[in-house]
Amino acid sequence: MVVLALGISLCVSLVHFVRIVNAGIPRDLAPAAGEVSPAVRYSFTGAMSPTKKESAYLHLPTYATGIIFHLGTFLSFFLFVWIWIGLPLPGIPLVLVTGFLTLSVACGLSMLGKRILERKLRLLSNPDDYLSNMLVDLFQATLVLSLWISAMKPFCFLTMALLLLYFPVGKLKHALYFFAARYQLGWFFGRRGVWPP
């Protein structure tokens, strides 16, 4: 089931990826005033830091919540493969991983709660926003539970399959487009001599 879902997910994601790459970088006939490479590097590093990015430094709790949730998601994918291939997870790492993923699930749920409770976010949101969050929360939660309760493993595999299938059609695909967007931002501000500041 997971293999099939992974195959479908990879194929559709590949379509997105090929479309981005095929379309190519923007064309600009205006003479550049700066360099693209350092600006792209800055776009992925300095410009993302909470000292520079207003959306981060004005919202530090949300920023921290988001970081933890994303780290939890990456860790969950890694752990899923770990479990899948049948590798053992000894005591202390198991406790640490459980603690971190529990925190990550709590972060995900708090972001979901914020989306439901804040009028500004409700206005922006569509069912995809709620569903995407819930799928990732559910995946992380079932994964944590399956680390301790073997009977939860089928549920974990089921949510993973759903997550993989949904990944390329909903907003979760921002995991792909994020890299293109940051690159293009660096390209734009780099050519214009704005970044790095």
Binding site: H16, R19, P26, S55, Y177
Partner: peptide, 24 residues
Amino acid sequence: RPSGDSRLLTHLNSCVHCGLCAES
């Protein structure tokens, strides 16, 4: 309809509706 380069395609598909841009 995205054409020419990847700029439009990219930015039309990237927003996650986090709303953190409001104060900018």
